[in-house]
Design a protein around this nucleic acid. Sequence first.
DNA 1: TTGAAAGCGCTAACAG
DNA 2: CTGTTAGCGCTTTCAA
Lengths: 324, 324
Amino acid sequence: MARIKDVAKEAGVAPSTVSLVLNHKGYVSEATREKVEAAVKKLNYVPSEVARNLSLSRTNTIGVIVPSVSHPFFAELTEELEEALFALGYKTMICSTRRKENAEQTFIDMLKRKTMDGIIMGAHSLDVSIYQGVRQPIIAFDRYINDAIPIVHCDHEAGGHLAASAFLRHDCHHIVEMVGDQAVKSPANRHHEVLAEDMREQGIPYDIFEMKWNAFGYRDFLEAARVLFECYPDVDGIIGSDVAIAACQYAAAEKGRKVPDDLRMLAYDGTGITRIGVQPVTAVRQPIAELARLAARKIVNRVNGVRDGLPWTAKPVLLEGETC
Amino acid sequence: MARIKDVAKEAGVAPSTVSLVLNHKGYVSEATREKVEAAVKKLNYVPSEVARNLSLSRTNTIGVIVPSVSHPFFAELTEELEEALFALGYKTMICSTRRKENAEQTFIDMLKRKTMDGIIMGAHSLDVSIYQGVRQPIIAFDRYINDAIPIVHCDHEAGGHLAASAFLRHDCHHIVEMVGDQAVKSPANRHHEVLAEDMREQGIPYDIFEMKWNAFGYRDFLEAARVLFECYPDVDGIIGSDVAIAACQYAAAEKGRKVPDDLRMLAYDGTGITRIGVQPVTAVRQPIAELARLAARKIVNRVNGVRDGLPWTAKPVLLEGETC
DNA sequence: TTGAAAGCGCTAACAG
DNA sequence: CTGTTAGCGCTTTCAA
């Protein structure tokens, strides 16, 4: 494999000159530039990224940590982050944590080892001590980790009001919300509070149905949905994540409940899966792409020591469907 | 940031000794080991992965190229690959190509720059010349790229028979298959042939409905599904990818077609989305996890110059649902 | 069992 | 405008 030194020899110049040409830096005469380019072509030279990284002490790589890549929400998020980072000249390293032991730990260690220039954290680590001694920037996605780590997130206050308004267009008498483990600190929790308040103001009963930690597979929700219908036989409005609502649709059909006449449902997230069913789901859609672009630009700016005035949040929208 | 030299100084030994301790190599006396470990702890030393990579000329990173991370099939694939690679001590770099210009090119270039030790290629590049001069191993996933690149793939022959057998359990009179662009060379095309043959043998009319290249979003399929029902009013059996079938379910409902009595549907892939609808879809499931593990082990073996006797294919299974 | 020294391949400061 | 030189931080012979 040709190295920069070989190219230099071939072109009859110094390695540093080759470096200048390759990186379009400084002033190089047209003549030498051409000699170098010819040599590069002749030797089929491709610079080593690793050597470059060592020299510059930066890798142009950002780590993206999510609980699960295949979960619809995180799949979309990962895709958008990767695209946004790519557009900024960065590579994306991924790590899914749900089915691994100590994956956050391992990944943060990699960060410390300077494998990556920074991290976007979309998983909900419970142990906060692992962040000790990390010098590279970290940005959280819709997760509170500690006071030092800023969060990019949907405006869940608006999300809560949006959800409330969707229900209030109809004549609902009992709303139940399926929520994840409340021990996970996230700005998302705000939308429950807002929805609860809005319902209280209207005098509409509102209940919370809490899931166990890390239970967010379809099976978990289906089981929960069945229990939900037992616990609250008179429920006529359900809100939950996309997957939760998908499960509720199934459980409702089992129960013979008619949606939307007899029972209204609202998904919170609004990923693709709410669009593709036989009965598209009305949803509060998080602006995933926009948030991803924000997170990407912010982490890159931090890596480069640039302060930006970019917002930390973006507004959700109501996606009309046939369930509410 | 402490370097190995600082640790050496602190421990009163040479850098090379520290290296030995850190990598559990060679013989080091218990006494020095302890001194070194103490120094590491005291200085909060974390070795630089980049320097290590340069020295060893390997990055322990594998690139995964897919058309789209958020597409259900590739989302599952990406997740399984990442997990399998992680288990083998490798990091995963991702690149989605669908919404980018020349993304394959760019990514293969990164491979040449030794950013990654190898690549698992799940996208269907049309231009084959970009692979010129790549020295690192590449393994394709269900895609024919060129004769030098081996392919890990589902046993689509078995898949075709499985699909046929599913239809043959019932009394179908006209099967239509929705397929992607046939210009993309993939082992997957085999299942169409097999299904077609099996149908011909039984004297059952069978038609192909071909999609445009890179049209595999839900909207594309929905549009196509509507056209399909116009073109083949008497169709009573449809097979296609998971997303295609989801679209067909919707279009069928629009048409007032009753599934499964009046119309049978079979999804080919069997990802999570076939499980979560109100009417779970009968599907030929590709063994994605198993294939991912195979691909991961194979690429890692190749990186290490190890020949293995692992199979290149795995068998699909029939996933029962309510549509066929 | 440990240390000295020579890389790995590139960049950047500084002369000239 | 170009070359010299000194790193970036770790690994690995090869001696001792």
